[in-house]
């Protein structure tokens, strides 16, 4: 019996991201700047140097708020992503309880404002505090932070489910058939063939969702969470100086710009099989 020679590896450009570009360095630098804003207080030194008392006094609180915002967005995007997979799969069924439930879920969370959902969970839970205490859930709902995290995760799960479902639908049927012809089971075909291709399509909408979440997370400030927006409002209220909102705007811009550049990077990695070899 002759052994078939090992098939040649698919053509790829060097490395996951291909050739390094200056844009990559900018993305890395931006991410480093944001990390340093949370972890160190160099902006205070600059504020002192500029003689800006308000900045010196309130920047540390904004930095703390920025940390909270990053946490809220990162955790809810991940949790929402996990929840979105079963939701997206349920959306593919034509009928049945799971499909109706998923439809209703997405319908509700996409159809109502995040602010309303946050109020509903936070003050709604407050109304039923005795019941929640009875079933041992009050410890969770007592904290504004957990209420916000729950609401954000549920909300983004609905959007991510739609993104994922659309992207899976966009993978040509032939891919399923080819996998079947190769004798791959459906779950294996889904995980190894369909999902990776769907991610390429879904990447940009995902980036959009992350950006919307970063800005939407400002809602947390209305239920006593001191995120970036909450800290900004506190500083503006104490100082009656609207320049604080300008600093916050710059920080939000910085966050969104970083996401944009990181997304460029990831896209290059995911589409490396489509690039010509040098």
């Amino acid at each position: 019996m002759t052994t078939t020679p090992h098939p040649e590896a698919p053509p790829t450009a060097s490395g996951f991201f291909g050739e390094a570009r200056t844009g990559d360095l900018v993305a890395l630098a931006l991410a480093a700047v944001i990390a340093s804003l949370v972890l160190s207080d160099w902006p205070v030194a600059i504020g002192t140097w500029l003689g800006n008392d308000i900045f010196v006094r309130y920047w540390p609180r904004l930095a703390e708020g920025l940390g909270v915002t990053l946490q809220l967005v990162a955790i809810s995007i991940v949790l929402g992503g996990l929840l979105s997979l079963p939701l997206a799969l349920a959306r593919f069924r034509n009928r049945g309880f799971a499909s109706t439930l998923a439809y209703g879920y997405v319908y509700f969370f996409r159809g109502t404002p995040l602010l309303a959902q946050t109020f509903l969970v936070y003050y709604g839970a407050g109304e039923f505090s005795d019941t929640l205490r009875g079933i041992g859930l009050w410890g969770f709902f007592k904290e504004a932070y957990w209420c916000v995290l729950l609401t954000f995760s549920l909300n983004t799960a609905a959007y991510q489910a739609e993104i994922l479902a659309g992207a899976i639908r966009a993978v040509p049927r032939g891919q399923w058939e080819a996998a079947h012809a190769l004798g791959l089971s459906k779950p294996v075909a889904f995980v190894k063939i369909i999902l990776p291709q769907a991610f390429v399509t879904a990447l940009r909408p995902y980036g959009n969702e992350v950006i919307l979440m970063i800005k939407g997370s400002a809602v947390a400030s209305v239920v006593t969470v001191f995120d970036l927006m909450g800290a900004t409002r506190l500083a503006a209220n104490r100082t009656f100086d609207e320049q604080v909102y300008l600093w916050a705007a710059v920080v939000y811009l910085l966050l969104v710009e970083t996401i944009r550049r990181v997304w460029d990077l990831i896209e290059r990695g995911l589409t490396r099989h489509l690039r010509r070899r040098a």
């Binding site: 407050g126 109304e127 205490r133 007592k142 504004a144 006593t224």
Partner: peptide, 18 residues
């Protein structure tokens, strides 16, 4: 220290036990 948009909201959270 927790700060609220209105006094009613703060009162509601006191009643709820937050």
């Amino acid at each position: 220290v927790k700060l609220y948009g209105t006094q009613d909201e703060a009162n509601a959270d006191l009643a709820a036990g937050r």
